[in-house]
Amino acid sequence: MIIRKLSGILSNFTNLSRVYAVMVIIVVIAGIASIPSLDYQGDRLYPKTIDRDSPLDPYDRGGIPFESTVVLAEYPENSPYLGYITAYLTPLSLALAAATPHMGTTIVAHPGGIIDEILYATRGLDTVVETTILFVGFAVAAHLFRRREDE
């Protein structure tokens, strides 16, 4: 009886996101009890240092362009030029950092800086997969769009 009812719910695929949501909620509720026992170790890799006086405020990792700086990567031996991208500042962001107190944070978006070091160099494969996901998502949308144009 129960099995018939359950399989009835499962066989209707509009219910499946509901079933999935129930499972996630169960896992999270069970997990809440274990949260106090979790031990924070997150700052072992690429820790964030904040120096409020620096014009590059949250992204100041030291070093001068074309020199290296200290970066705590998982496998430093795999990246012989570790730290060079972090220390690099484009001339524009250098000028901005010298001229203004806060605009230097454009280093996040500009080539160079710690985020680019992680995204392009040490964890480059992640970004390859990420852009591929964007590509596939776009290909699906474009394919369906073209098909409806043809109809």
């Binding site: 896992v27 997990g31 924070y40 700052d43």
Partner: peptide, 22 residues
């Protein structure tokens, strides 16, 4: 996993048993 063990690499995590059940 990153917050509780400080790494994402399966090489480092292997055999440590440090990953929480959650």
């Amino acid at each position: 996993i990153l917050a509780t063990t400080g790494t994402l690499s399966i090489w480092t995590l292997a055999g440590m048993g440090a990953v929480p059940l959650l």
